[in-house]
Design a binder for these strands. Structure first.
Length: 363
DNA sequence: AAAATTTGACCGGG
DNA sequence: CCCGGTCAAATTTT
């Protein structure tokens, strides 16, 4: 059916991803002058890694034969067992073929969910900052779990109707690990913010008056600072609950040559990532928080917003099971000037409405 | 004062 | 009725 289509699509994405990586590497090479700031290089490196990571995830997904998507084999992380096993998602993935209908009930089903394990460095800053701003709206004790689960929604709900949501819960097995489950996509024009927790002390100083520390924190007027101090994020699973066929993959008629390498200026790496992200907004690519945006909505926003990763460290969380893919947090990017292109808005809108599910609150 | 978090009530599915 | 998820009033933080 349209599986073919999606494969084509993935291939395209893959290609551009690799191309991008190559391009970035090139940039890096040209950036070797001692004059070049270290951070700039770090950023490039982060991006390169990100590209590879992404490309790899695409490949992996392809390999799978069953159903729609298939993700990473990393489901070995057992810890918050209660989670992975009993979660509705897993069930679904099992029987997905048989009752696609079930999905039809777009009532409460989020577009997709993505579970990410984050190892937060011991003590100090156990920052779990993915660059988005969330507002906590609830907390619950979950039956088998030792730690409560926190519920967050994008701060820009209400103002921009962003439906992204996430749940955070410490792994009862290993408190140093936190399981973050993202659901829904960001439709807001997210202006990434500097993690306050991560460099808490530093950040604080910065905001308090040490503008020095802020140097890089605010050059782009758009200020998309992302300090991605994601610890080693262990991607555990990524599920796409939506199996409808017609929906995703709108006909995106993007330039077949997404990125014109040459255009990518030295410091303008923004454009590049965009499309890709744009595209896989529908397929949970990988490292969560990143990548998802849609061109519609009120985001007039700057044509080119970029994000820089906080090239943080990627700790390899080795603790249990040396597995782990290190994922240095990627980041997202935003929308484009493209607002109205080949995107069949209908699809998108539809999409939104669906998501609008339980939206009728707001007094 | 405004924004974010806390926390028990409330709601809907199973 | 239980449980996970969300609401919303009260409260804390900024």
């Amino acid at each position: 059916m349209e599986k073919r289509k999606s494969m084509e699509w993935e291939q395209k994405t893959l290609t551009s991803e690799l191309t991008q990586g190559k391009e970035l590497a090139k940039q890096l090479m040209n950036n070797l002058h001692p004059s070049a700031s270290q951070e700039k290089r770090d950023i490039l490196i982060s991006k390169i890694l990100f590209s590879y990571e992404k490309a790899l995830s695409l490949l992996k997904r392809d390999v799978g034969s069953d159903g729609e998507y298939n993700h990473i084999p990393n489901t070995m992380l057992e810890s918050p067992a209660s989670f992975g096993n009993s979660s509705p998602m897993s069930e679904i993935s099992d029987q997905d073929c048989k009752n696609k209908n079930v999905f039809k009930k777009r009532k409460t089903m989020p577009r997709w969910t993505e579970e990410v394990k984050v190892y937060s460095g011991t003590g100090v800053d156990a920052s779990l900052d993915d660059g988005y701003s969330w507002r906590k709206y609830g907390q619950k004790d979950i039956l088998g779990a030792t730690y409560p689960r926190g519920y967050y929604r994008c701060t820009h709900r209400g103002t921009q109707g962003c439906l992204a949501t996430k749940q955070v819960q410490k792994a009862d097995a290993d408190p140093s690990t936190t399981v973050v489950t993202y659901r829904g996509e960001h439709t807001c024009s997210q202006v990434l913010q500097l993690a306050r927790s991560s460099a808490s002390s530093l950040a604080k100083q910065a905001s308090t008056g040490n503008q020095n520390a802020t140097r890089e924190a605010e050059k782009p007027k758009a200020s998309q600072e992302m300090s991605f101090s994601f610890g080693a994020g262990l991607r555990v699973k990524t599920e796409d609950l939506d199996t409808r066929e017609d929906d995703i993959f709108p006909s995106f008629s993007f330039p077949s040559t997404p990125i014109e390498p040459e255009n990518v200026g030295d410091h303008i790496f923004c454009a590049t990532l965009m499309e890709n992200d744009l595209m896989d907004g529908y397929s949970p690519t990988f490292a969560s928080p990143a990548a998802t945006f849609e061109p519609d909505y009120l985001q007039a926003v700057s044509p080119c917003q970029m994000s820089s990763f906080g090239l943080g460290h990627d700790y390899v969380q080795t603790s249990e099971s040396g597995l782990s893919e290190i994922i240095s947090a990627p980041t997202s990017v935003t929308n484009s000037p493209i607002g109205d292109f080949g995107f069949s808005l209908d699809d998108l809108d539809f999409h939104h409405f669906e998501n609008t599910e339980s939206f009728a609150y707001e007094s």
